[in-house]
C-alpha cells in the first residue's frame, strides 16, 4: 500500500472498473510506457533516414552542420535537462503532498520549455532568412553539395516534430497547473503529473540525441 496518510481516504479519482488506486496508477503508467514505445519508433523512422543518408553522404553532414550553431544547441540542451529536473521535482512535490511546490516547479518547467522554443524560433528564422528553407523551397548557395536540401529536410523534420512535442508538453503542463490549483492532486493521486513527466523526459531524451547528431559533427 502507499503511505498511509489522511489523504488515503480521498478516492474520488478512482474509476469504478478498477479495484484500488494502485491498480489504476500502475495501469496508467504502463499505458504511458507503451505510448512512449510508439514515440521511440515514430522518431526512429526519422533517425533511420538520418543514418541512411549519413552513411551515403558523410561529407554532406560535415558541411551542412557548419550552418548550425553549436552554442545555441548546447544552451537548449541545458535548458531541456533543467526542465527535466524541475518536472522530476514537481512529481516529488506531488508525492509529498506539497501542492505549492508542485505548481512552482510546473511553472519553471513551462518557462524553460518556452525558452527552448524561443531559441528554436531564432535559429529557424535566421536560416529562413538565408534561404535555408525546407524541401523544394531550399535556395541557399553556401553549401557546396548537391544534396544539401536533403540534410535540411531531415533537420527540419526532426527538430520540427520535436518542437511540436515540446508545444504539446507545454499544453499538458498548463493543464496540470489548472488541475493542481483546483486541488485535484495529492499524495494518493498524482497519476497525470507522473505520466506527463514521463512524456517530458522522453522529449528531453530525443533532444539529447538530436544535439550531437545535428550540431556536433566535426
Amino acid at each position: 500500500m502507499a503511505q498511509p496518510s489522511v489523504t488515503e481516504e480521498r478516492l474520488e479519482h478512482l474509476k469504478h472498473y478498477f479495484i484500488d488506486s494502485d491498480q489504476q496508477f500502475e495501469a496508467s503508467k504502463m499505458g504511458m510506457w507503451i505510448f512512449l514505445v510508439t514515440e521511440i519508433l515514430f522518431f526512429g523512422g526519422l533517425f533511420l533516414a538520418y543514418i541512411v543518408y549519413r552513411t551515403w553522404y558523410p561529407e554532406l553532414y560535415l558541411l551542412a552542420s557548419e550552418e548550425l550553431h553549436t552554442f545555441w544547441g548546447a544552451v537548449n540542451t541545458v535548458v531541456l535537462i533543467g526542465s527535466s529536473l524541475t518536472v522530476a521535482m514537481a512529481i516529488r512535490s506531488a508525492q509529498l503532498n506539497q501542492i505549492k511546490g508542485l505548481i512552482i516547479n510546473l511553472y519553471i518547467t513551462i518557462g524553460l520549455a518556452c525558452v527552448f522554443m524561443v531559441i528554436k524560433y531564432f535559429e529557424y528564422s535566421e536560416k529562413f532568412a538565408k534561404g535555408i528553407l525546407p524541401g523544394a523551397h531550399y535556395s541557399y548557395e553556401g553549401i557546396a553539395h548537391e544534396k544539401a536540401n536533403i540534410f535540411f529536410s531531415i533537420y527540419y523534420m526532426m527538430t520540427g516534430l520535436h518542437g511540436i512535442h515540446v508545444l504539446v508538453g507545454i499544453g499538458l503542463m498548463v493543464w496540470l497547473v489548472f488541475k493542481a490549483k483546483k486541488k485535484v492532486f495529492h499524495s494518493g493521486y498524482y497519476t497525470p503529473v507522473e505520466i506527463t513527466g514521463l512524456y517530458w523526459h522522453l522529449v528531453d531524451i530525443i533532444w539529447i540525441f538530436l544535439f550531437p547528431l545535428l550540431y556536433l559533427i566535426d
Binding site: M1, D22, F25, L85, M89, L96
Partner: peptide
C-alpha cells in the same frame, strides 16, 4: 497488492541533473 511509489530526494535529483 502493495505498489512501491519511489520518492527520490531533492539532493539525488540535483545530482542526476
Amino acid at each position: 497488492m502493495s505498489v512501491h511509489h519511489h520518492i527520490s530526494s531533492a539532493k539525488f535529483l540535483w545530482g542526476v541533473a
